[in-house]
């Protein structure tokens, strides 16, 4: 069924594709990121209750959404790496994990900075905040585990398994605000209903979400390229590439 995907799993092809996509993704990411954040932070109207403080939503929500999005993509790559033993997928796990961890840190930090003036506290151990913190620990676990074994293959397998198992946390994060009493408010846009945010604030938010997604994709391409070169450094095609790069200078 997935036979048509096979050629893309070849490191050399994947390296070319990542190199081809990276400049476009990065350009699009920077453009949308500028548009979304400047529009959201400076040109949207203030909220009727929270005044200007709510503007941090334009950074908090995109980073939180993609901290979970990055985790799902990492887990899919981990599944492919474990079951089909695709090397490139295993490198993708290592490429995505630190980016996802940083997105999670951004989400937690902007959430705290938003919570202090609005709720009156930096942190509270409610279900949403705690499960997002666990997501950060899962990322750190995946990163740490891959380097924790003398045999790199064992480390890669262990971290891939942890990445898959951690998927259990994703629905908990998303539904925590519905299943339990939390200080964190419910979902504004990720629900099967009309977003409960005014259109003048929704558009920059959607652009920011798109921007963070593109940014994640671009950084993944860049990191995956490096991982491919590192792991394939003794292969002829990498030597050829290095030789032609030296000649080009």
């Amino acid at each position: 069924m997935f036979k048509w995907l096979d050629p893309y799993a070849k490191p050399e092809t994947l390296y070319r594709i990542c190199g081809l996509w990276f400049p476009w993704l990065m350009t699009a990411a920077v453009a949308t990121l500028l548009l979304g954040t400047v529009w959201g932070l400076a040109f949207t109207p203030a909220d009727y209750q929270q005044g200007d403080s709510y503007r941090i939503i334009h950074i908090h929500v995109p980073s939180a959404i993609w901290s979970m999005g990055a985790y799902s993509s990492m887990a899919i790559a981990a599944l492919i790496a474990l079951v089909w033993q695709v090397k490139a997928a295993q490198w993708a796990v290592g490429a995505i994990a630190p980016i996802g961890a940083v997105f999670t840190v951004i989400a937690l930090f902007t959430g705290a900075a938003w919570g202090k003036p609005m709720w009156g506290t930096w942190w509270v151990w409610d279900a949403r905040l705690t499960s997002e913190l666990i997501l950060l620990f899962l990322y750190l676990g995946v990163i740490a585990l891959s380097g924790a074994f003398a045999d790199r293959q064992t480390g890669a397998k262990a971290s891939a398994l942890l990445a898959i198992v951690g998927v259990v946390n994703l629905p908990i994060i998303h539904f925590s605000v519905e299943w339990w009493n939390t200080l964190h408010q419910g979902a504004t846009i990720t629900k099967f209903a009309k977003p409960s945010i005014d259109a003048s604030m929704l558009w920059p938010l959607l652009i920011s979400i798109l921007a963070f997604g593109l940014w994640l994709a671009a950084l993944t391409c860049l990191r995956l390229k490096t991982a491919i070169l590192q792991n394939e450094q003794h292969r002829p095609w990498v030597r050829q590439l290095a030789a032609s790069a030296v000649k080009g200078e």
Binding site: D47, Y48, Q50, I57, W119, G186, I197, M201
Partner: peptide, 18 residues
């Protein structure tokens, strides 16, 4: 000993809220 404010998930400009 501590009072925290909880806000909802609705965001809108003051005119719209009014």
């Amino acid at each position: 000993t501590e009072v925290l404010a909880k806000h909802d998930e609705d965001y809108m400009p003051p005119e719209v809220a009014a």
